[in-house]
């Protein structure tokens, strides 16, 4: 019998409360929209026999979780000091222009979400962005346009 998405992920971690941080990361990936639906958090709470408040605390504490649907690709622009010293704010502006959305928003086609993030350890190639697991650095407007185009084309 095939279980629910939640029960499958939980089984992977032996239904252990201790693995909640990882469980929620996996669930977010399963969602396809880079977020954890409320019903899933409720299911996790029931199946792990943990108060929903505690699951909610974890889900709202860590920056990598989203509780609302995001685009297929979340573009995270680093805004920490090393990237800023290499003019990261111009990256944010270029991306806003390229995608016609503001930071924090998602494109109408549901493909991209733009958001800020703290340093993710790519300061050797700053200014840097992260799309999912992939990191891109030493960026300028042209390189960004190239990257966005590649993601869009990958879609077709």
């Amino acid at each position: 019998m095939k279980g629910t998405v939640v029960s499958e992920v939980l089984t992977k971690y032996d239904n252990s409360k201790d693995r909640l941080v990882q469980i929620l990361l996996d669930l977010q990936e399963e969602s396809g929209q880079n977020y954890i639906p409320r019903e899933w958090l409720e299911e996790v709470s029931q199946k792990l026999d943990t108060p929903l408040t505690k699951v909610y605390d974890v889900a709202t504490f860590y920056a990598m979780y989203n509780l609302d649907p995001k685009g297929r690709y979340v573009i995270e622009v680093c805004k920490s000091a090393p990237c800023r010293s290499r003019k990261a704010e111009t990256l944010a502006q270029s991306l806003e222009k390229l995608l016609s959305i503001k930071m924090g928003e998602t494109t109408a086609d549901g493909l991209f979400t733009l958001q800020h993030t703290s340093c993710f350890g790519a300061c050797d190639i700053s200014p840097a962005i992260k799309i999912g697991e992939k990191v891109y650095g030493n960026l300028n407007e042209d390189k960004l346009a190239e990257i966005i185009r590649a993601y869009r084309e990958g879609q077709k």
Binding site: S16, K17, D18, R19, L20, V21, Q22, L24, L25, K54, D57, V58, F61, Y62, A63, M64, Y65, T117, S118
Partner: peptide
């Protein structure tokens, strides 16, 4: 291997231990 999920404070050793235990890293 245990993963964090985006919280600088989890580098503080007691917060890190909380995080390994599956809790918010305070």
């Amino acid at each position: 291997v245990v993963s964090g999920a985006g919280a600088y404070v989890c580098g503080e050793n007691t917060a890190l231990v909380e995080s390994i235990e599956g809790k918010a890293g305070r």
